[in-house]
Structure formats: C-alpha cells, structure tokens
Design a protein around this nucleic acid. Structure first.
Lengths: 158, 158
DNA sequence: TTGCCGGGTGTTACACTATATCAATTTTTG
DNA sequence: CAAAAATTGATATAGTGTAACACCCGGCAA
C-alpha cells in the first residue's frame, strides 16, 4: 500500500475523494475536466508521488492509449494552472495537489529515495516572506518551499 | 549598471570582493579553483542574474574559449556543491551565492521579467520547517524557497 | 626514476525534458 | 445554425543534462 504524507491510509478512498473534489470545482468554475485531463490526474493520485511527463506517457501507452508529449504537458498545464496539481521543479515532475482550492505557499517534503512528495501547508510564514520582499521592493506572485530529505519509510527500510 | 538585490551598487568592486572571498575559502579548504571554474563563477557574478549552462557556454565561446556542455556542468557542480553558487530550479539556471559559507535555507526572489535573482537569508523559519518535518517523520537535508514575482526595476519600467 | 593513482579536462554521443506549429475536431457561444 | 473558442492529434525540433572514454598533469610511493 502506498503512503500519503508518509502515513498509511485508505488509498482507494483517497483517490475517489480527491477526484470528487476536483470534479466539483471544475463544475463550479466551468472548467473542462476532459477524459485525458481526468486520467492524468488519476494517475498522479494513484501513484501518489512525483511523476514526470514521460512517466505519464508511458502509463498511458501501457493502458492502450498512446500519446505524444504535448498531450501530457497540456494536461499537466491545465492541472497546475487551476491548482489541481503542482510541479516539483527539483524533480521535473508533478504531483496531485493535496488540498485544491487553498493556500499559495505550499511546502513540499521530497524524499530523495522514493520521490514521494508530501505537501504541507504553511511552513512559510506569510509575514516573514512579505517582509523580506518589501525590504527589497519585490512583488511576490507565488512562492514554494522545496525541502529534500528522507521519508520515514525509506529511512527505516534502506 | 546592473542591480544587486534590486539596489544599485558598485558592481566591479562587488565582483572582486566575492571572488576574493571564494578564493580564500578554496585555499582554506584545499579546493581547486581552476581557471574554468573561476571563469564560470566570474561570469555568474558579472551578469548578476541567473544564467543557464548553455548561456555560460555561449559566453565562453564568445571570448574564444569554446567548450562542450559537460565543461559547464562540471564547473557548476563544483560551485554548487561547495556553496559558491545555487541552482534556481524554476529557471534551470544558476546564480552566484551572495554569501558563501553561511546558512542553508536561502530565499530566492526571482523576477519573471529579467531573471534577476536576489538571495535573501532566513525567510524560512527553521523552527516552523523542523516542526513540519517532525510531524511527518521526515528528515530534511536541505530546503529552499523560490518566490517568483516582479522586481522593482521591471515594475517601474515595463 | 618509474610507475601508479587521482582529479581535472576535452570530446563524442546520447538521454531526458519541454515547446512550437499546424491541422483536425469538439465544445461553447452568439 | 454559424462563428468563435477550446481541445486534441501529430510531427518536428528546441532546450537541458549526463554517460563514457581518452588524455593530461600533479603528487607520491616503491
């Protein structure tokens, strides 16, 4: 069984819940959750770790729906633009957002062994960041924290 | 005149000072600041913004010292490994470190117009981060904040 | 001296990541 | 329905990064 936030959980229900939440948001905002976009999001949720665009293409091919790179990148662009997924720059890979529709300064805990990514809210003090930015006259539009290390599962079972 | 931290400064002196500091550290730690490594660091300092590996290769070629990609990546690997430069994942580019030999959780303010990068210390609360990590049983090895926005120069002169 | 060994460099070739472009199709909207 | 907009399909190519091997040069031990 996969892990989420490095703790065990009912993954099947987890995926279903998140899909339902995204569907609801898409309906509300009149966004088109097309079959491809939907499937890509499901893949991210199922694997529950950072997947590269080409991992997704491989998965699509494996299930008899081969596609070219732009297909994956367009779906991922849709998902990230609307906050349903995030790009982990450090890995050139993507993860499903754990809490669509909220905050804008997530912290990612990235395991360097298994590439599992836990998304935690609010490590970054909004005040501290705003203060730093103001000091420099800089206008922040978005900010992320990427922390790399070892997750508990990989630490215990090397 | 270029800007540093979005404020004007004596850039020639700035470059010289930083080079001297890095030289001192290399001498102390018995690191080989070879001509190529030295030149790459100088390029980063002179431009004072994020440069891609291929930007550096172009610059080297322009000054009559053509080189292949591994040359740039090796130099950059040396510089980043020893804390003389940082990689900005968001840009697939590199900047000289503004304060070699210190802290490990820098905040980068990245201008989306001109790619200038300001490195500010300590926006990220070590305590908050440690707390978040402990909560998840995660062992952090390094963390960075990458904030994207508009620098004062680009905001005033669009 | 000789020979080894390690780090650094030069070079070729290749792998991985991402986007531009245009045509074809579907969906939305007036 | 017709026009406009959004999505998809497909080809080609751009941009980023590394593997692998040969070569050179310095130190150092036999």
């Amino acid at each position: 069984m996969a892990s989420f936030g490095f703790r065990g959980h009912d993954h099947t229900a987890c995926v279903a819940d998140r899909m339902a939440a995204v569907e609801a948001q898409c309906a509300e905002k009149k966004l088109q959750l097309t079959p491809i976009r939907r499937r890509v999001l499901e893949l991210l949720l199922e694997h529950h770790k950072a997947l590269g665009a080409y991992d997704i293409l491989k998965a699509l091919e494996a299930e008899g729906r081969p596609a070219q790179p732009p297909v994956a990148y367009r779906a991922l662009d849709f998902l990230t633009t609307h906050g349903f997924a995030h790009k982990i720059e450090r890995l050139n890979a993507f993860v499903a957002c754990s809490d669509p529709g909220h905050g804008h300064a997530p912290t990612f805990l990235i395991c360097r062994d298994c590439n599992t990514v836990a998304e935690e809210p609010g490590t970054l003090s909004r005040e501290a960041l705003a203060e730093t930015a103001n000091l420099a006259g800089f206008q922040i539009e978005k900010a992320v924290v990427e922390a790399e290390g070892v997750c508990p599962l990989c630490r215990d079972e090397p």
